[in-house]
């Protein structure tokens, strides 16, 4: 993080939000028997890991089924820019057929990654329902009609600015900050 950045969520606040999201998941899915949590590569997997750890340690949920999903090959901007999309590993050793899937990502911006994830998830089976959890919702930047079911915080930022989430094993180092577009 450099000087041009501004902290949006402090480590303490981020920790409280993640705990609230875990509680909200628990409220809706209680025993987690028919639920699969899927973190979207590359950044959504950190929130997923934090949530799974919390559900196990704080709420006594013994087994939370989870996976990592990469949506690179399902993106709609392939061959539209000079940026080449390179894929991250998928870890989907789970059955999703007939289960409720919760897609988890860090920042919801245009909604295009989520659209790609909705298509990608179909390759593994037909879930009974799909929900969306995001840590940060950049609400006025959407290109598609996609809204989160679970939401950490809403942030309004200029189109060119970047909202970054910094994850770390040490909770006091995790935070959300705004990276100003200086161009």
């Amino acid at each position: 993080m450099d000087k041009a950045s501004k902290i949006l969520l402090s480590p303490q606040k981020l920790d409280v939000i993640v705990q609230r999201l875990a509680c909200q998941l628990l409220e809706n899915h209680l025993d987690f028997k028919n639920v699969v949590l899927i973190g979207l590569q590359p950044r959504g997997i950190y929130l997923l890991d934090r949530l799974c750890a919390l559900l196990r340690s704080e709420h006594g949920i013994k087994s939370v089924e989870s996976g990592y999903l990469d949506t690179t090959f399902f993106r709609d901007d392939f061959r539209r820019t000079h940026k080449i999309l390179t894929a991250q590993p998928n870890e989907m050793n789970i059955q999703i057929e007939g289960k409720a899937v919760v897609l988890i990502d860090d920042v919801l911006f245009t909604g295009r990654s989520i659209r790609a994830a909705l298509t990608a998830i179909d390759s593994y089976g037909r879930p009974s329902a799909v929900e969306l959890m995001v840590l940060i919702d950049r609400r006025f930047s959407r290109h598609l009609p996609i809204q989160p079911d679970y939401l950490g915080a809403q942030i309004d930022a200029l189109e060119g600015d970047k909202v970054r989430v910094k994850w770390s094993d040490n909770k006091t180092e995790c935070l959300v900050y705004l990276e100003k577009n200086e161009a």
């Binding site: 090959f73 399902f74 993106r75 392939f78 989907m92 298509t119 179909d122 390759s123 593994y124 089976g125």
Partner: peptide
């Protein structure tokens, strides 16, 4: 190796 072995790229 997925049930549906196709991507739309």
């Amino acid at each position: 190796n997925r049930p549906i072995k196709k991507v739309p790229s």
